[in-house]
Amino acid sequence: MAALLDVKGVSLSFGGLKAVADFSLSLAEGSLTGLIGPNGAGKTTLFNLLTGVYQPDVGEILLGGQRLNGKRPYQIAAAGAARTFQNIRLFGDLTVLDNVRVACHLRATRGMWAAVLRTAGYRNEEAAIALRAMRLLELFGLAAAAGKQAKSLPYGQQRRLEIARALATEPRLLLLDEPAAGMNPQEKGKLRELIARVRDEFKVTILLIEHDMSLVMQVCERIAVVDHGVKIAEGTPGEIQKDAKVIAAYLGTAESGAAAE
């Protein structure tokens, strides 16, 4: 399979601090990869680089062969990469449905004049958007809450809504930043099934930052480990669990890393 995402020797420093150093990663189309590492290892910084929030000092990022360097976040979203945020960033005052509908905007083609004049084409498009948004909400078990304000949802549902919103942009690459944070074991179980289902149904490639080791080990096919901005290991869950460097990075055993979560 061809690589969908190709990160080639990317580095970024803040002042004197090297946040990401000579980082390379290649994700095959349709793969599900975990990105793990201790707190402050540079995982979220890497997501910010991939989505254009930061620009790399050196190195190259390719999505489906298209260079992402120098692109702004909205252009990268248009190129097919969507993300969720570690600290949830929903549109709190909008309804749950509108949170998803606004993300459908990216693929909408009718202009402002059409919206003001309410042309038939525009109305057809709006109807299609509403339908697609509701389907996504159903898939994520949020249909009943469609009319509620997003900020009124419980934490776990907010995390799921963020994933639904990201999917509404019709991405090829989905970046999930700690989707299980703050969830109870039951919710985590459901989330695990959901992630696998999303990958199969939407044919997206997924890169997942997660501290919950059991989740990562169960759901991911491959895992990359970052420490101090450097990729120290990459391989299957089985290989990673046995990797000496990884164990050292997590101060002792892999179990203590999981327990720290």
């Binding site: 989505t51 929030v53 702004r72 976040p73 909205y74 979203a77 248009a78 969507a82 993300r83 945020f85 960033r89 929903l90 549109f91 709190g92 005052d93 909008l94 509108d98 509908r101 606004v102 993300a103 459908c104 905007h105 990216l106 909408a108 009718r110 202009g111 402002m112 919206a115 003001v116 309410r118 525009y122 498009e125 709006e126 958007i129 919103r165 990201a166 509404a168 942009t169």
Partner: peptide
């Protein structure tokens, strides 16, 4: 009409959270 449209929601998303708005493709 504008506010009830997809463009209106793009306006509102900037008010709600600019970084998230960019991340879903709002210029």
């Amino acid at each position: 009409r504008l506010r009830e449209s997809t463009h209106g929601r793009a306006f509102l998303s900037i008010r709600e959270n600019e970084i998230a708005a960019e991340s879903i493709g709002v210029n």
